[in-house]
Each structure stands twice: as structure tokens, then as C-alpha cells.
Design a protein around this nucleic acid. Structure first.
Length: 453
DNA sequence: TGGGACGTCTTA
DNA sequence: TAAGACGTCCCA
């Protein structure tokens, strides 16, 4: 589907004013910009050609609608093709893992290789196959789009060529198509705000683009099949299937608000857990870390020597929100023996030693903000918005092909894409933030054998 | 009961 | 110090 198609449709309408036409054009452009690359801003009739191609288009009702439908399907075809490409590359990486392990490879290069989108085209062009995922995190500058001119060709785009309006979308190089889609959709402001934020591009896009009036759990991203607001679910080449879009309290574009949203939610979790688990915490921020120095105790793990509870993923940090195993890191390769989560999904909080978490800083901040030790007291002392409106997690229900076997988070390999996945249960996020159950140093009950391997 | 994942120790 | 290995926890 492309703009020209809509303009063709407009040709069937009664005569409208130029202003009306371009108002509709802008609407169509806003809706379709992220879906296709076959963009030509001319109306199909009688326009002066200053560019190199001509339009031999005579709309015939009843004959042209199949063409229009075909144009609508093209993005879906591209999507399937992208998924097929991804699976092939996933297979490639999987098969070549052994060879890669045997070959000396600089660590930085290895990380870069893993962290880079698996699509070669995306690597080459710094453009992921879905425009809204990690795109902005790669520092790609969106291209300004001028849709106001009556004869605007999008030849000013960075790498896009002039595209014939009659060219089917599937004949267009995918890079160009995707680039155009993303660039049309993103504003420079959005890119700047997303850059550097510890969020995925998808989430950033939601934060930036979702209107504040969209109620959590309503007609949100999940209901639209993972597409962004304002985009039709079919053909919206936005997110790979299974990627869950997490929205936050703040729908505004302020980066500070975004950061504060996550942080505040984490604080809320900490405080909530203290009360929820029947624990009693002192007002000391250190207690909130749940480390041995804290005075937070609970019924299940008191300081007298109860079993040390494992910390759990915070569910908030970027790695936690990453849902798909890279499949190529050592943890993924040695999953059976390593028993470790993908390195890129390892919770940032779990990477830290207990007691060196960020809650201390935010606890202080919140304490100062509220004028009292809210964390050490009760949920009643938390900002009401945090209690009544925790950041919603839109969970896409897994289909029948996606098993839920893990105790924590399902492992999603690239080859599982195409099925929908879901996030760690909300209870993991809300009820058991990291560290709170840790009370005192315990003898090593886990650990390896006494004798080396 | 199977499997994901954390904690800790060992090794390079 | 990072990475790997493995016991153990935890959950469905």
C-alpha cells in the first residue's frame, strides 16, 4: 500500500479542493509512512511532470481494486520475507557457533557482532528490519520529510532512490523501503530523545508517539498487534512478532520523565515488597538493598539463617525487557551446561553485587522528594500515581505453539520468532524486586562441587 | 518433573 | 577480571 494508491482512491471521490486533498494526503502519509516505500506525492491525473517518469494511469473501477489490494498486501509479503531472512540467519549463526568459538575473535568485535542486528542489510545500513525496534539506538538520524509541497518527491532521502509510483513494493530494495518507512515515521526530536536512553527503540517509540489518552490495557500496542498507534495492524511493519511493547506512565516525550518513570516504579516495587512480604524495614536506604547490612527482614528469610533467596530479574532494565535470546553468546550456546541466561538478557541489577544497586540513590531521591522515609514505611507513602498506575506491561498472549515451561522467563530463540511470547509474570516484577529477601550472609548452599572439574 | 536461571566457585 | 561450570532454587 502506498500513498499513490490512496491518491488513486481519491480520484474516485467527488471533486475536492486542493486543500482538502492535501489534508487527506497528509493523513494518509502519516498513516502509511512506515509501511511502504512506494511513495509518490502526485495525484494520478494531470500533473506536471518535472521528474523522469510518466504515469499512464487510467483508473477503472472494478479493474484497479485488485491492484490496490495487492499493494496493501505487499508490506505483509515483505514482512514474511524479512522473517524468513531472519530465520535463515539465525540458523546460520547457530550452525556456525562452533566454528566461531574455535576461531579467535576479539571480544569487542564479538560483542559488536552479537549486538548488531542480525540482518546483514541492517548492519550495513544501520537499519534494523523493523524500523521501530533498535533503530534509534544505533544513532541513525532520521531524514526530514517534506510533505507540504504539491510536487514533493522523496528524493531527498538519504539512500532512497526515486521510486516509481507503479513499482510494486516487493520490487523495492528492502533497505530503502524500510529506511523510508522509519524515517518518515520518526521525527528528529524523537530520535534525539531516544538516543542514549536505556530503552528499546520500540518502547521509546511508544513513549514518544502514544498519545497520553491511550489507556493502559485498552487499545494499546498489544491490541494492535505490536504496531504503533495510528498504524493499522495489518501490514504495519513495526515490530517482530513476539516483541512486547511496554508502555510507561509517561507518554510524553520528555526523556527525564521516561527515566523517572522506570526508576520510580522500581522504587515502588521495593517499597511494596517490603510491605507485601510482611517484612519490616528500617528507614535506612541500605536496608532496601536487601543485603546483609540492611535491616529488612521477612518471614521467609530472617537474619537467623533462613535460606538465601535468589534475586530475581527486575523486569525493568533493558536486558530484562529484551525478550529474545541472541542465540550466539556463550550463555546461549552453552545453555544446557551453562545454565545462564543470555548475556544480553542478563538483568542489570543481577549483574551488580547485592548491596550496590541503584535503589539507594533513588531511595534518597524519593525520600527527599516526599520529605520522609517513604520507602521504609508503607505503600501509602508512595506517590499515588505509582500505586494506582504501575507501568503497564502489555502482554501478548502466547499462541498454542509457544510453550511456557520456564519458571522465570521463556527462552525465545530467533527461530521461535513468528510465535508470540510473553514477559515474566507481573508478580515477578511487582512482588519480588531484587535483593529484598537477602538478609544475612549464608554459607554457600549453591555453588559448585568442592573438587574442580 | 523438566527446564530456566541465579549464586558461587574455578579457571584462564 | 571475565568467562565458564555446576549445584541449586524456583516455577509451571
Amino acid at each position: 500500500m502506498n500513498i499513490s494508491v490512496h491518491l488513486r482512491l481519491l480520484s474516485f471521490l467527488p471533486r475536492t479542493t486542493a486543500v482538502d486533498v492535501w489534508a487527506l494526503v497528509r493523513v494518509c502519509f502519516a498513516l502509511m509512512a512506515n509501511m511502504s516505500s512506494s511513495v509518490c506525492m502526485e495525484t494520478p491525473h494531470a500533473h506536471g511532470h518535472t521528474h523522469g517518469h510518466t504515469h499512464n494511469y487510467n483508473p477503472t473501477p472494478g479493474r484497479d481494486f485488485p491492484l490496490q489490494i495487492d499493494s496493501c498486501v505487499n508490506p505483509v509479503l515483505d514482512y514474511s520475507a524479512q522473517m524468513e531472512r531472519y530465520r535463515s540467519f539465525a540458523t546460520f549463526y547457530k550452525n556456525s557457533a562452533a566454528a566461531a568459538a574455535a576461531t579467535p575473535f576479539p571480544q569487542t568485535a564479538k560483542i559488536a557482532r552479537i549486538a548488531t542486528p542480525l540482518f546483514p542489510s541492517a548492519r550495513l545500513s544501520a537499519m534494523p528490519p523493523w524500523p521501530c525496534d533498535n533503530a534509534m539506538l544505533w544513532g541513525r538520524k532520521p531524514t526530514a520529510v517534506n510533505v507540504n509541497g504539491p510536487h514533493t518527491h522523496r528524493t531527498g532521502m538519504s539512500r532512497a532512490e526515486p521510486v516509481n509510483v507503479h513499482m510494486s513494493a516487493k520490487h523495492i530494495p528492502q533497505d530503502s523501503a524500510l529506511q523510508m518507512g522509519a524515517d518518515n515515521f520518526l521525527s528528529p526530536l524523537a530520535a534525539e530523545q531516544c538516543r542514549g536512553l536505556p530503552v528499546t527503540g520500540a518502547e521509546c517509540m511508544n513513549r514518544l508517539k502514544c498519545p497520553p489518552s491511550v489507556p493502559p490495557g485498552g487499545a494499546g500496542e498489544a491490541d494492535r498487534g505490536g504496531t504503533f498507534g495510528g498504524m493499522p495492524p495489518l501490514g504495519g511493519l513495526s515490530l517482530p512478532p513476539g516483541v512486547i511493547v511496554m508502555t510507561t506512565l509517561h507518554s510524553g516525550a520528555g526523556s527525564s520523565g521516561v527515566t523517572m518513570s522506570d526508576s520510580a516504579f522500581q522504587i515502588a516495587n521495593v517499597a511494596a515488597d517490603c510491605q507485601h512480604s510482611g517484612s519490616s524495614c528500617s528507614g535506612s536506604p541500605a536496608a532496601l538493598n536487601g543485603n546483609a547490612n540492611g535491616s529488612c527482614s521477612s518471614g521467609s528469610s530472617n537474619g537467623s539463617g533462613a535460606a538465601k533467596r535468589k534475586r530475581k530479574r527486575c523486569g525493568i532494565c533493558a536486558p530484562c525487557r529484551r525478550l529474545i535470546n541472541c542465540g550466539v553468546c556463550s550463555s546461549c550456546r552453552n545453555r544446557k551446561t551453562g545454565h545462564q541466561i543470555c548475556k544480553f538478557r542478563k538483568c542489570e541489577e543481577l549483574k551488580k553485587k547485592p548491596g550496590s544497586t541503584m535503589e539507594v540513590g533513588f531511595t534518597h531521591a524519593l525520600t527527599h522528594m516526599l520529605g520522609e522515609s517513604a520507602i521504609g514505611r508503607s505503600r501509602r507513602h508512595l506517590p499515588l500515581v505509582l500505586l494506582k498506575n504501575p507501568p503497564p506491561i502489555h502482554v501478548i498472549k502466547p499462541d498454542s505453539n509457544t510453550r511456557r515451561t520456564a519458571g522465570h522467563t521463556p527462552t525465545i530463540y530467533p527461530e521461535h520468532w513468528g510465535h508470540q511470547v510473553h514477559m515474566p509474570r507481573q508478580r515477578d516484577v511487582v512482588d519480588e524486586p531484587l535483593g529484598l529477601k537477602l538478609t544475612s550472609p549464608q554459607p554457600n548452599t549453591n555453588g559448585r562441587r568442592e573438587t574442580g572439574t
